[in-house]
Design a protein around this nucleic acid. Structure first.
Length: 436
RNA sequence: GCCGCCAUAGCUCAGCUCGGUAGAGCGUCUGCCUGUUAAGCAGUUGGUCAACGGUUCAAUUCCGUUUGGCGGCGCCA
């Protein structure tokens, strides 16, 4: 057989009722009722019900197909019919079978409830489930929408090394690697130090790359390997970078709602919500955030970072993402620029997603003055000698600049209203899981 | 890293409190069924009770250790 079409095209109504089509895919479910059987066929694009009726097909083919195990791959020819008895509203009345790639028996994934441990051990098969298929397709569109936005706004994409010798975030969360004979080589936690060097070469830049954090975090919002979308701009202040974040996030949300609303809905998020998001997002100061938390009778002192006890209730006050601006110096890394009007806080800002999802972007304005950065490094208990090339950047043509990092999986988790980050990625890596 | 919980058939679980070598549903398989939606009906198959050690005449059951996992905390995107 040749000339196969995508299931997605049939479900969109691209083919007239009664048109003859050829499809190929994997048997997702099958039900037989004597003279008629129903196969749900899954190809890369969607799932469609195929019916085989003894009146329309020879008995040998009928009984052969009836015996095929789940996940058998096969080619079929038949007539498209609009029929509200079929899931998805369309089905194919099959009249001919092409090549068949028969499965083994006992495909382990069944349509009954199964435990998370088992499903994660069989992740290499479970990723075939239509819900995950939808999420991964949305994820791909999400990344494409981001790249479109960066292109339209004059950013250059650039990659930086995954092997590094300096820490961006805290040193305790570094993954150490064996790098030939050399000690002190780690997997990247962020591109930021390299990004600050590259803005003097390329101007506005972004990257989409993995970051690795050895945080021993057992929560539904942590991965040890996550996709990091980071952006760095010269001649940019805190409010400039917030503006970029607002527009980027809204563009991605609006695009998903516009381009694949049915998939968004199938996964669990009302696409109208994503369509309704508009820049700019609300801003509150760190001080105001502390007051809100305290007004809910939750313990918090000025200078503390938000724990889950504080952040959860805070995010329930909002229906869209919102910025918390001006974190205390004590809880932010050395490269954050102190507020010139108020030295105890930094020109930093995190974007928190509503509904308890929490932090999805962290960033702010960087220190661009050499002496100030040197002092901040010492204040943070670090040795400036370990950051020699990074300090160098402040000697020649240093300008105000800002940037942020966005956790792709965190944003997807919120946009798709998922209850665990693990399903935003095919093979999640966390402190307990590196297989399959 | 800390706190809590879990591990029995391919899967989801019951049995353990009060010790005497195991049971259901689903799946597989065999039939039946011409509109099913996690289809239905009948029959069939299927287990070194996570591993190691202890107590005991006897341990899936009680105790300890280990391994793996799940949920949460702290920390972060």
């Amino acid at each position: 057989m040749t000339g196969f079409i995508d299931v997605a095209d049939i479900l969109k109504g691209d083919n007239e009722d009664g048109a003859e089509v050829k499809v190929r895919g994997w048997i997702y479910t099958s039900r037989s009722s004597g003279g008629i059987q129903f196969l749900e066929l899954r190809d890369g694009s969607g799932v469609i019900q195929c019916t085989l009726n003894k009146r329309n097909i020879d008995a040998e083919t009928f009984s052969r197909v009836e015996k095929l195990p789940l996940e058998t791959a096969l080619e079929m020819k038949g007539k498209v019919k609009e029929d509200n008895r079929a899931p998805g509203g369309w089905e194919i009345r099959v009249n001919e079978i092409g090549n068949v790639y028969e499965s083994k028996l006992d495909y382990p994934i069944v349509k009954k409830e199964q435990g998370i441990e088992f499903l994660m051990d069989n992740r290499h098969l479970y990723i075939r489930e239509p819900k995950l298929q939808n999420i991964f397709q949305i994820r791909a569109k999400f990344l494409q929408a981001a790249r479109d936005w960066f292109k339209e706004n004059g950013y250059t994409e650039v990659q930086t090394p995954m092997f590094m010798t300096a820490s961006v975030e805290g040193g305790s969360t570094l993954f150490s690697v064996e790098y030939f004979e050399r000690k002190g080589v780690y997997l990247s936690q962020s591109w930021q130090l390299y990004a600050e060097a590259l803005i003097s070469s390329l101007g506005k830049i972004y990257t989409i790359a993995p970051s690795f954090r050895a945080e021993p975090s057992r929560t539904r919002r942590h991965l040890s390997e996550f996709l990091h979308m980071e952006l760095e701009e010269p001649w940019s202040t805190l409010s400039d970078i917030q503006n970029s974040g607002d527009r980027l996030v809204c563009h991605m949300a609006n695009t998903l709602a516009e381009v694949m609303p049915e998939k968004v809905k199938a996964v669990g998020r009302d696409p109208d919500y994503l369509a309704s998001l508009k820049a700019p997002f609300p801003k509150i100061t760190y001080d105001e955030a502390v007051e809100i938390v305290q007004s809910k009778n939750i313990e918090m002192f000025w200078g503390d970072d938000f724990g889950w006890q504080q952040e959860g209730p805070l995010t329930e006050e909002f229906e869209t993402p919102f910025w918390v601006v001006g974190y205390p110096s004590g809880i932010k890394p050395f490269y954050h620029m102190p507020d010139p009007k108020r030295a105890e806080v930094t020109l930093s800002s995190d974007l928190l997603a509503p509904e308890g999802y929490g932090e999805i972007i962290g960033g702010g304005q960087r220190v661009h003055n050499y002496e100030q950065l040197y002092q901040r490094t010492l204040d943070d208990g670090l040795d400036p000698a370990n950051y020699a090339w990074y300090m160098d950047l402040r000697k020649w043509g240093t300008v105000p600049h800002s940037g942020f990092g966005l956790g792709v999986e965190r944003v997807l988790m919120w946009m798709l209203k998922l209850d665990h980050i693990r399903d935003t990625v095919p093979f999640p890596r966390d402190m307990r899981r590196v297989y399959p």
